[in-house]
Design a protein around this nucleic acid. Sequence first.
DNA 1: TACATGGCGACAGTTACTGACACAATGTGG
DNA 2: CCACATTGTGTCAGTAACTGTCGCCATGTA
Lengths: 188, 188
Amino acid sequence: MPRDGSEARLRLQEAALELYLERGYDKTTTGDIAARAGVTERTFFRHFADKREVFFDGESQLRELLTDAVAAVPAGAKPLPTLRAAFHQAVPLIEHNLPVTERRYPVIAATPALQERALAKHAALVTALSDALRARGVAAQLAALCAQVGMDTYSIAIRRWGADRTENLHTHLDRAFTELRLAANALR
Amino acid sequence: MPRDGSEARLRLQEAALELYLERGYDKTTTGDIAARAGVTERTFFRHFADKREVFFDGESQLRELLTDAVAAVPAGAKPLPTLRAAFHQAVPLIEHNLPVTERRYPVIAATPALQERALAKHAALVTALSDALRARGVAAQLAALCAQVGMDTYSIAIRRWGADRTENLHTHLDRAFTELRLAANALR
DNA sequence: TACATGGCGACAGTTACTGACACAATGTGG
DNA sequence: CCACATTGTGTCAGTAACTGTCGCCATGTA
């Protein structure tokens, strides 16, 4: 029995993804996942809080990258341009994760329970970005609004990129933020 | 045994809210809720899909009101102004629901499982609004972006209103949308 | 070589949720 | 007024997600 449980953790994640793809989320039990990973069900729950959590990983990595990128933007930049710049910084990571993301996509699309968890992860990123903006001196209320709106624009750009890979993510990102500016300009 | 089960349904909702407030979400079982409502646990699951769903109701009412309001906005209006007008139409309903909303708030704030479900309800409203915008001829991609951003701005206005009741919801709504316009204008 | 640490298996237990069947109350057609 | 279908409910059995507890054993350290 290895002292380092990270190997078992990785096997569990891979086994879960495979089984969710093969049989669907609802028709695979946590016992199934554990068996394929070569551990017991109890060990599964030592590594992951629940059956949904095993599906989402590396989110902390993106959060750190984004908050660091926000902090690194030159002082004086406005909130939304700051976020847009941070999202551009994250493009390489997103591109690197694309193969895994593409495998996950059909599973999420098919199971509401995973969609809910994805929304929760999204919301966690929003609060992290809001905190990062406040650390730059942005007023709390404005930071919350911009973090939410910016994150949504970012998500939509990624979604569009996934559906139309003929243009790179940077282009989709700039286009989405431009659409946001134009749409918001129609207010008043 | 009454033929109309809507009474039992209402009792279950009230019982759930009371118990979640008294003991917390995690420490109340579905059997507890059913017992207080005077029915069996099986009947609970005939009325609600799961332990979280009993907490959220009347969401379909808001959805209908908002989509109808979007459809009623004069043709030619841009997406975000359309949504802002629809949100203003919904103010009386929100004000009317305030007592219930205030009771629910501390429970949601204390339990992640309910926060997730609340996010899912929010997302459902976003897609409903996106569809309503497309029905007005807005391009699909723009509709998705505006529905998301508009709904977020709406939610933030409601949150601010809840924390600062010295000004009415209409005022908070207009202020949030103005902040959105100004923040987005800084993009380029 | 003794000891502390930490990941793991084994096992029992709680609880959310589902399927199947029976019954009772109500609305409907004759 | 009497079949009869409909519908909400109770009962019971069963599955599966998750938790607490204990003991084992492999590894890192004195």
